[in-house]
Design a protein around this nucleic acid. Structure first.
Lengths: 206, 206
DNA sequence: AGTCGCATTAGACCAAAGTCCACTATACAC
DNA sequence: GTGTATAGTGGACTTTGGTCTAATGCGACT
């Protein structure tokens, strides 16, 4: 597969900043897109790939910090770099507490900006990889029938088939049958593996 | 058991600050101790309970940010709150990136200070609880003999006893004997539980 | 009405795991 | 020496787990 370029989303109401950052990023091999307001970004952008957001704090309408709040609420995990000409310490601390990867007061030089972007993209990449793993597991577990998921829960709790059968009011044979299908569907062949899958999927024992 | 008061360590070269913060914290039910330099803190303090550090950035000798670096390097996980009269944004961002829970420019009011301390102590408390769990598990697993740990590794990889025996060049009976002792020593009674313990202890399958 | 997926079960086996007891052999400590 | 911990083994069983085949009942979709 072709190497996907990471995409940087620049949200700033100052056209000259947008333009210069855009040029800078593109010249260093990033994809980049610009938005002149938080609203525009929220409307237009549904990007799912890897990248980061460069966000001006002070903007008309929804400001940068408010946008960050929105994205957090929506579990939108793309890393955010703040840039601003009118920042102060409490503002930067607040942004960092909420998960920003960096906060750059304008003016900043190209180098520190690019470093921040690289860090942010790297953060996003590893987060996406980690998440993709557990999402794939969840996907597979959700292909199990409700009954199978129920049995799975008891199994990873360490209960013997006989007891599982008793609790569910069914025959031990049936539990075995479910177990067999669970293992086949999840394409695994050992109880420890099953336990780890369930663990990653957030299935609690008992 | 008696409720342990959290302890706050105040590190600041300004005696009047030390004194006022000390009084404030004590009046709100915290234990608190003061240090007039990072060096003094490093020499004197080996506190293991729950609490946090209030750290001045600008100090003669080792400054606050340098001390934070030292503590991080030593895996000393007590949360740090920075306070400073001569801060700027890059400084605060740097501190936050390195894990500070807050960064307060002087002057700050009592209320926001206390809020920060509470947050920090809470952070420490939950971190300590989480860590205590895995440490206890590690302790128990390390009481297993080397051979038992070896067998454990194969078991949680999902290998049947017969294969484990083959790989170790021993009889299947012996593997069973080890398994039995492992389960007894760890005081558990199911393979899924064993798998989870091993997982938390960082034992990799295969 | 027919077909599918789901849940359920039985019978017949076989393989794997666990238990109890006894025995041997190191190695290290007191 | 006499212990104590670790490691390895065998016999004799019991309990669990897993597989294959075959079958039944139910609800949903066509």
């Amino acid at each position: 597969m072709a190497e996907e370029k990471p995409t940087v989303f620049i949200i700033d109401d100052d056209p000259s900043i947008r333009k210069s950052l855009l040029r800078l990023l593109r010249s260093f091999g990033f994809e980049a897109e610009t938005f002149d307001s938080a609203e525009e970004y929220l409307e237009r952008e549904r990007y799912q790939g890897t990248g980061c957001i460069v966000l001006d704090v002070r903007m008309p309408g929804i400001d940068g910090l408010a946008l960050q709040n929105e994205l957090n609420k929506a579990d939108y995990t793309m890393p955010v770099i703040f840039v601003t000409a009118h920042g102060n310490i409490p503002m930067s601390v607040e942004a960092m507490k909420k998960g920003a990867v960096d906060f750059l007061p304008k003016p900043f030089d190209d180098n520190e900006f690019l470093q921040a972007v690289n860090r942010a993209v790297e953060t996003d990449r590893t987060a996406k990889i980690r998440f993709a793993g557990t999402r794939e597991i969840l996907r597979r577990i959700q292909r199990l029938t409700p009954r199978e998921q129920e049995v799975l829960r008891y199994v990873v709790s360490g209960m013997p088939n006989k007891q599982i059968a008793f609790r569910l009011g069914i025959a031990e044979k049936t539990v075995k049958a479910h177990r067999g299908r669970i293992m086949k569907k999840l394409e695994i062949d050992s109880l420890p593996e099953l336990t780890r899958l369930a663990e990653k999927a957030g299935i609690q024992p008992l």
